[in-house]
Design a protein around this nucleic acid. Structure first.
Length: 108
DNA sequence: CACTTGACGAGCT
DNA sequence: TAGCTCGCCAAGT
């Protein structure tokens, strides 16, 4: 796209998240040049939850490693998907968050 | 064109 | 420690 929307850019970053790793809304926003648009990233994922896009959006959590988007999942749950990636989730929180955190700015 | 809507984040009470 | 408020900003209505 010559004029990719902010959402489109979010989709691209999300699609690049490696298996077994997670990133945050803020990190993605920052990678796109708008560190203060973390909310936009979350809103973008709502539009991205379409089956046709099949993006690993379950690998995106908030800055605390909390599964804030869990409510938007029908089934399987966000936790189930993360555990399928080998990520340990306890009480809606990603374990070893600091270790599996994937920063699009640093690792891309 | 103006108003509302949030999978957020940081700061304050 | 937990909960509430404020700022930010593109997209949808």
């Amino acid at each position: 796209m010559e004029n990719p929307t902010f959402y489109q850019q979010v989709y691209e970053i999300v699609s690049l998240i490696p298996e077994g790793r997670v990133t945050t809304y803020g990190a993605i926003a920052k990678a796109l040049g708008s560190s203060k648009s973390s909310r936009l990233v979350g809103t973008a994922l709502i539009s991205a939850h379409q089956p046709t896009l099949s993006l690993p959006i379950h690998r995106v959590v908030n800055s605390s490693g909390l599964l804030t988007g869990k409510n938007h999942y029908h089934h399987p749950t966000m936790q189930e998907l993360l555990e399928a990636d080998g990520i340990q989730v306890i009480d809606d929180k990603v374990q070893n968050f600091n270790e599996i955190f994937w920063d699009p700015l640093t690792e891309l």
